[in-house]
């Protein structure tokens, strides 16, 4: 009887394996997560048999999962660190990076603010609390209200790294926990400054020229605009051409992929 049960169980397991032969596990960054999810949703609609799961744990967790063979694709908002790479290599896994999109961050102010351009250093000084009045950067006599994203967001990470150079933000800086909220704070306060992804800039706020470069898709993708970073999908070796993994990590190069990336307010690497 017991043997029969175990046998049945084995049969079921084999069956389950064969039914969901095509699975795709994606793990990693919460920043890249929305793109991966949008891709996954589209893939599900065209390949109904495909089992696809997207976990949003964090870039570090994604790298670890790839090394442990727990996922097929690791989503990362930064490049893999040497240590992570070594750990993967030790386990016989060779991480290969695919750029899925660019994350460009605009510094935004109220449209009535006459300040049009700042340098990265000036933005840093504002967030360090050294510049407290717009008159210090050629604007009106108006207190600067600096608004930051919450420290757990990917946008904050990028800003912290590329603008703050990992220095601590002043304690009087206010925090909001979403891009639309940052946008709302700036559009509703004449002295406010904040940073949001390029996709969130509209007529209600003004994005500043940084180090002489106007933020746009072109300047971000070409790397001229200083506050931008690539977002990655890592796979074990270059995936077999035509495999599901291959289709997934090159999907951003298609027209639909570009639209999905744009819908998630990131900057696509292609321009159809």
């Amino acid at each position: 009887m017991k043997m029969l049960k175990i046998g049945l169980l084995l049969v079921f397991m084999v069956l389950a394996q064969s039914v969901s032969a095509e699975t795709l596990q994606i793990d990693g960054s919460t920043t890249v997560g929305p793109i991966a999810e949008a891709f996954a949703e589209y893939f599900k609609s065209i390949y109904p048999d495909l089992e696809i799961s997207v976990k949003k744990t964090g870039s570090g967790d994604g790298a670890k999962a790839l090394g442990d063979g727990m996922c097929d694709i690791a989503a990362m908002s930064r490049f893999m660190k040497l240590n992570e790479f070594k750990k993967c290599a030790d386990k016989g896994i060779m991480p290969v990076a695919h750029v899925v999109a660019m994350d460009g961050i605009c510094i935004i102010v109220h449209p009535s603010n006459p300040v049009k351009a700042l340098t990265t250093q000036q933005v840093q000084d504002i967030y360090l609390g050294k510049i407290t009045n717009w008159s210090q950067v050629g604007g009106p006599n108006l207190a600067v209200v600096a608004v930051s994203r919450d420290t757990s967001s990917g946008t904050y990470e990028t800003f912290h790294e590329l603008v703050m150079k990992k220095k601590d933000i002043a304690d009087k800086v206010e925090y909001v926990n979403a891009n639309p909220q940052a946008h709302a704070r700036v559009s509703g306060n004449r002295g406010a400054i904040a940073y949001v992804g390029l996709g969130f800039v509209d007529a209600k706020v003004k994005s500043l020229t940084i180090d002489g470069v106007v933020p746009s898709k072109r300047t971000i993708v070409s790397g001229v605009y200083p506050i931008a970073r690539p977002l990655f999908l890592f796979t074990n070796g270059y995936p077999k051409l035509g495999s599901m993994v291959h289709r997934f990590v090159t999907f951003q190069l298609t027209e639909v992929g570009q639209e999905l990336v744009e819908a998630k307010k990131f900057v696509p690497v292609t321009d159809y």
Partner: peptide, 12 residues
């Protein structure tokens, strides 16, 4: 928030 900024001239 906007009301306080406009009427009481709070910076935030």
């Amino acid at each position: 928030a906007p009301w306080m900024q406009d009427h009481w001239h709070f910076s935030t």
